[in-house]
Design a protein around this nucleic acid. Structure first.
Lengths: 218, 218
DNA sequence: GTCTATATTTGGATAGAC
DNA sequence: GTCTATCCAAATATAGAC
């Protein structure tokens, strides 16, 4: 521990509310790098991200990035965490009515919109397109949190049948995938979300697996 | 044209049924290379295919591959063509009953089974995971042929609504994608195909968009 | 047709000066 | 913290001998 570091540490402990401008600056730069990484991968794809390009985008030389991230995968991990946090945040902001059909539509619309809105983010979060990369436990924990959130939402609607849930998620990813692969930027499949959820809902009712709070009319 | 080539050419023209052993041998080697490429790619993923590995697998040095294929993408193209041909062939072998629901199930089951049976092939044929690669017009034509086949099948069932078809394809790719991503080698999603098709079918009937030959009972 | 040798490019990552 | 210089590894692809 250098003299300067010791000094800082003592100050931090003694004077709690003091901001650490050094750390703030550092975090800001890290965020800037991650942002630049997103803009690059949105154009060239995840696999094409190179540290040279990335450094150039933020006005650095490649080795300088190693002052902020230990490796390339470490950068991917930061991107993953950011994406997962966005998902949790936006999902949390959804408004629930208590009506199962309406709420299912809300959730499905949100999922498909979130994914098609940024296909590369979808790829990073929900598929595994980078050979040597998997998210760190800390980053993955964010995803797990959101999964739990969704499960609770399903349960509160009365949807607890695994088969049914699997069918619904397949619908969501199917619409998403077709939209991204075959009509990028359009709405040929996203516009089908409501109809798909209604179809699913009526299917559930006909199996009497659902407990409705209000009764949905045909 | 060398003397030998001229000689061969004259022979081919004069004596029609004569086989060209040279060409046969060459095609066999090409097929062997493509087969080796598939086995490598199934293990390491599409992106990880390297010409060194591939050459080693068939007992060659890397440059020798250039006697058979002009480039790496040329090899991918051959793989694509082979995959597409398999699809057409297997689809063609399906047996149709004339009953819309049954036939829809047959088609959907086939699609999902074909895709989950070889996820890497699915990736190469139906997604675009290799940065610089897209199939040559000749190879792509095979896919177009199969699409036309499927369209005709849909039409013969009385299914000609674009929205409905899009919904059905989303169901197929959704089940496929979830199966591959979240339960590789299992059947958690593939076993839902029949239920999904029934759900879709009843949805169609309730919209009275379908002309049935036999009437399906509830 | 197959080989050895090599050109060329492009990555990620490290060392050490400042 | 940032830079220059460099290392190392891996990849596609070509040249030319045999």
């Amino acid at each position: 521990m250098t003299k300067t570091e010791r000094c800082c540490f003592i100050l931090m402990v003694l004077v709690k509310p003091t901001r650490d401008r050094r750390t703030e600056r550092r975090e800001a730069t890290k965020a800037e790098i991650v942002e630049a990484a997103w803009s690059l991968v949105r154009v060239n794809g995840l696999a094409a991200l190179s540290l040279r390009d990335l450094a150039g985008r933020v006005g650095m030389q490649a080795p300088s990035l190693y002052s902020y991230f230990a490796s390339k995968n470490d950068i991917f991990d930061a991107m993953y965490a950011e994406g997962a946090r966005e998902y949790v945040c936006q999902e949390h902001a959804l408004v629930w009515t208590g009506d199962p059909l309406t709420d299912l539509k809300t959730l499905s619309r949100f999922f498909v919109a979130f994914c098609t809105d940024d296909p590369v983010r979808y790829q990073l979060l929900f598929q595994r397109p980078i050979p040597g990369f998997e998210p760190s436990p800390e980053s993955f924990a964010i995803s797990v949190e959101s999964l739990a959130e969704t499960q609770k939402r399903f349960a509160s609607i009365g949807l607890d049948d695994e088969r049914a849930i699997d069918l619904l998620t397949a619908l969501g990813t199917g619409l998403t995938d077709q939209q991204i692969s075959n009509d990028p930027g359009g709405d040929r499949w996203t516009r089908l979300v409501d109809e798909a959820v209604e179809m699913f809902f009526h299917h559930l009712i006909s199996k009497k697996t659902l407990t409705t709070k209000k009764d949905a009319k045909t």
